[in-house]
Computed example of a mutant assay.
Amino acid sequence: MQKIYFISGTMCTVDLWQFVFPKLENMLPIHIDITPANSFDEINDLIQSHIEEPATIVGFSLGGFSAMNFAVHHPKKVKRLIIVAANTSGLSDSEIQLRKNTFDFLEKHTYKGISQTRIQQFLHPDNYHNTEIVSIIKKMDADLGKEVLIRQLKATSVRINISEEVLKLNIPILFIAAENDALVNPKKVKEFAYQTRKGKHITIKNSGHMIPLEKHKELASILNLTIN
C-alpha cells in the first residue's frame, strides 16, 4: 500500500478529505498540516519533513500551490503531483484585496467565524444550503481559529507566479478544476496544463471551489484511476 500525501487549503484541516479518504484503494493517505507555517519556505520544510521520496502529493487550493512550489524547489523528491482547484499564478487582485480587508478587520475586531457569504463564494449554487458541507467548512474554520487565519493570510497571500518553473518540471501533473470555481479559472488551468511536459487536465462539472467536499466521489475515482 503506497503512501499518498495530501495538503489542504487555507483554513482547512484534514476534515476536508473525510469523504475522499475512505474511498481510496491501495493507498495510505497522509495529511500534511501546513497551518503552523509562517512562509512558503516553512511550508516546504514541513512537506519535506513528512514525505518519503519520491512522493505523490495531492494538494487542494493553497495546498496545490504549495505542492507545486515544493516540487519546483525539490524536483527529485516528487514523483507525481495532483493539483485540485489551484493554479500557478497565485491569487487574483480581488482575492488579494479581500484578504487584506479581512486581515485589517481581524486586527481590530473579534473573529466570529467564516460568514455565509464567504462560504457561498467557495460553493456551487446547488450547495449553498447543503448543511453537511457548510457545517464542515464552519467546523474547520472554528477549529483553526483567528490566530491561524491571520498567520495564513500573512504567510500565503503574496504568492509569486511560479508558472515558468512548473513548466520545467518533468513529472506527471494532473490538474483537476471545477467548472464553476469562482476563485480559480478552470479555462486558464486547462490551458496551462496543456503547456506542461507531462500535464493532464480534468474539469469536474457542477462543482464550486470545494471539490473534495462537493464532488468527493468523482475526486476519489480520479485518484484511484490515476495513482493505481
Rank of each mutant, 00 (worst) to 15 (best):
M1E: 13
Q2V: 14
S8Y: 00
C12Y: 03
C12G: 08
T13F: 00
T13R: 00
V20I: 13
L28V: 14
I30E: 14
I30Q: 13
I32K: 05
I32M: 09
D33Y: 04
I34F: 07
D41G: 09
S49G: 09
I57D: 00
F60W: 03
M68T: 00
K77D: 13
L81D: 03
V84Y: 02
E95T: 13
L98P: 00
K108N: 10
G113R: 02
I114Y: 00
Q116H: 07
Q121S: 10
Y128A: 06
H129M: 08
T131G: 00
T131F: 04
K139M: 08
K139I: 02
A142N: 11
A142Q: 13
A142T: 09
L149M: 15
I150H: 03
Q152R: 01
A155I: 03
T156C: 13
V158R: 10
I162Q: 06
L167P: 05
K168C: 10
F175A: 12
D181Y: 08
A182I: 06
K188P: 03
K190A: 15
A193V: 06
H201F: 15
K205I: 06
N206D: 15
N206R: 11
K215N: 13
H216V: 01
K217H: 15
E218M: 04
L223E: 06
L225P: 01
